[in-house]
Design a protein around this nucleic acid. Structure first.
Lengths: 205, 205
DNA sequence: CATCATACCAGACAAATGTATGGTAAGTCA
DNA sequence: TGACTTACCATACATTTGTCTGGTATGATG
């Protein structure tokens, strides 16, 4: 019976399970057994239980595929995939397939948040470090605070701007001196949400 | 026996299952049954099977939690958690616990890539849309091309700059007119890697 | 040497989970 | 009206999956 030094297989099992969990399809104990060519399910199970006892994995006891990444401050909030949209619907996030560019992984602090990604097309926000081609991650909300960077729909066209609220009206400010603020008619403006994250991919895969 | 118009429950079940799959924990048929207060497992199963027949869900037949998003759903490359470092080691990525600020989820195109995140501290790259507090995602590599944005160690201090390579020497250029290019002595320079992504979190959790 | 901790195996059992069969009820259409 | 489609319910069975009990073997330590 071959046997590895203490801790070596454990570490490889942790990485296998972690990768499976991040890919969205948790393994069964038997899948771990097969992945490592053990002859016994119990071998896999003992490694997994040890990882749970060390706090590196969480677990829903007795449930199929029940191992989880733990909710710990080290790993941060749970990760989920959020749709990257080519076009934003005005209503609820019923995503038509042709509007879906892909998905991006986001650490979501509150699971009730409805998030989406949108690709920036213009240069009106370069002064705020938001360049064409960047992706903004937007939390859907119908209102925002003055000073927030928001995504708004004006006559069915989505735009990223800084919101300025005064007594009588709302303004959408660019962060680029070549552009003028937009003062939309209130019936033409629909605020979609607040930009909570900006991402730039510098390299094509 | 209450009953909804055709297609309405189906749509809500699709969204429930899709969100569970995007969050990384696929549901059992019984979990769908309970989420929708059905009295019978078979009700949930029939909706799920219909979604499979419509091509909106995939499935590993006979497997627990076997429903999947179909391959056409453009999920992108697998996600991994990449360490966010407070200090960059000059050697291999053996991370001391005090240097680890947390983890960020990255879609990794090549599993052999060694990645880390680093928080930007200065204003020398604002012209390139990289602001203080941003996180740069770095792929460890010992060389890069002229024009790449890189992370380099100069006298044990990590800096983010644009690399300029000429015949005789290497320069590290800021993207801010208030700063001068750095022309390091070649023994003082260690190139750690290339910046492949920039992230800005606009909101504290 | 005995003891302990760790890494593995074998087999059986309990529970979770997927699946199948038979059914009711409502709405639409010819 | 009958036939068909769809949305639900009830029950049972088959299979997968988690768990437990008993075991061997190796290396380190007192």
């Amino acid at each position: 019976m071959g046997r590895t030094p203490p801790g070596q297989t454990r570490e490889r099992i942790y990485q296998f399970v972690r990768d499976r969990l991040l890919s969205g399809f948790p393994p069964t104990v038997r899948e771990v057994k097969e992945a490592f060519n053990f002859r016994s399910v119990q071998t896999a199970r003992e490694h997994l239980e040890a990882l749970v006892n060390e706090g590196r994995l969480g677990k829903e006891k007795g449930k199929a595929r029940g191992y989880r990444l733990p909710d710990s401050s080290r790993l941060g909030p749970p990760t989920r995939l959020v749709p990257l949209l080519g076009r934003v619907p005005a209503g609820p996030l019923d995503i038509a397939a042709e509007d879906l560019e892909g998905y991006i992984p986001i650490q979501a602090h509150h699971s009730s948040e409805e998030l989406f990604g949108l690709r920036v097309r213009g240069v009106s926000m370069t002064g705020a470090g938001i360049l064409p081609g960047d992706i903004v991650v937007v939390r859907r909300q119908p209102t925002a605070d003055s000073g927030d960077i928001v995504v708004a729909l004006i006559e069915d066209e989505a735009t990223v701007k800084r919101l300025r609220i005064s007594k009588n009206h709302v303004e959408l400010h660019p962060e680029n001196p070549d552009f003028e603020p937009i003062i939309p008619d209130s019936t033409d403006l629909k605020l979609l949400g607040k930009v909570i994250e900006v991402r730039r991919y510098l390299e094509r895969p």
